[in-house]
């Protein structure tokens, strides 16, 4: 181990202990388990700094935080899944004695033997750990994929396709002339507002039109088609830029939140 590493590690340990003692002292009288509390707050601050150190480079503190994070979070989901889905939803539908064991309230509709099917499918899925009959685990996977493919087929056909068409449609035929249709009816160029409106409607129409041309796969993008496709990708890029810029402020406020934790909850400076 290099000398610098040892010095840094020693410094971190000393700072950690000092913070622990000081925090525990500060919590004394406020909380029952002030030693554990002091440790936890210090540890949270340590982890915050450890993750931030990733900005400099990969280092042992980041590795520590990362590996701990992975283990704890995986267990967290496992526990949540077990208690909320298996115990709360499945058990009371399968057996009254199991429900009594877990002390979950029984369901008004009573037992439901259809729920043995997902249990069997779940067990089939676990069979993939076996080399010989692992192939049988494709059945439950096929069940999940099939069910959700059908569900998504309808959902997106309705919401992403038909609704988008109809929302491009409705203002066209309406009497109040908003949307693309406003173009021709607003040919009066005297007012700037109308000019902007007109340009906007053109841009919306061309944007959708050229965007769809860009996503047209089975034709070479040459000539007029190529020009349309190029305008399409330009408009897409402007959109992505706008969305990029829009996100920036949100991300900065997250950083401010973390810095507030370090300076207020841990160091109590602000």
């Amino acid at each position: 181990m290099r000398k610098v590493t040892i010095i840094v590690m020693a410094a971190v340990i000393v700072l950690f202990l000092a913070s622990w003692i000081l925090k525990a002292g500060a919590f004394q009288g406020e909380h029952d388990h002030y030693i554990i509390r002091g440790f936890l707050v210090t540890f949270a601050a340590f982890l915050t700094l450890a993750v931030m150190s990733f900005l400099y480079q990969d280092n042992p503190y980041y590795k520590f935080a990362e590996h701990l994070f992975v283990g704890v979070s995986a267990a967290f989901w496992m526990c949540m899944g077990f208690w909320t889905t298996i115990v709360q939803n499945l058990v009371p539908r399968l057996s009254t004695s199991l429900a009594d064991f877990f002390e979950v309230p029984q369901r008004a509709e009573g037992l439901n033997f259809f729920f043995y099917t997902p249990v069997i499918l779940g067990i089939l899925l676990l069979l993939r750990l076996s080399r010989k009959i692992g192939w049988i685990s494709r059945w439950p996977l096929a069940f999940i994929v099939g069910t959700t493919a059908g569900l998504n087929f309808i959902r997106y056909l309705r919401s992403d396709f038909i609704k988008q068409i109809s929302s491009t449609f409705v203002p066209l035929l309406g009497r109040d002339w908003e949307g693309i249709g406003a173009f021709f009816s607003n040919l009066d160029l005297s007012a700037t507002g109308q000019l902007v409106m007109m340009v906007s409607n053109w841009v919306i129409f061309l944007g959708v039109f050229c965007g769809l041309i860009y996503f047209y796969f089975s034709r070479e993008h040459k000539g007029v088609f190529g020009a349309g496709s190029r305008v399409g990708i330009w408009i897409l890029m402007i959109t992505f830029g706008a969305s990029f810029g829009y996100t920036v402020m949100g991300r900065i406020s997250l950083l401010v939140g973390r810095i507030t934790f370090l300076f207020r909850d841990w160091l109590e400076l602000i």
């Binding site: 491009t168 449609f169 035929l173 693309i180 021709f184 009816s185 996503f215 034709r219």
Partner: peptide
């Protein structure tokens, strides 16, 4: 099947164009 997707897109473009024409003739 990609070809089918493109056909559907072409249909959308035609629908939107038809909508535009309808709207402006139908004042």
């Amino acid at each position: 099947s990609l070809k089918a997707q493109d056909w559907a897109k072409a249909a959308v473009i035609i629908l939107v164009l038809a909508g535009l024409i309808l709207a402006n003739l139908g004042v």
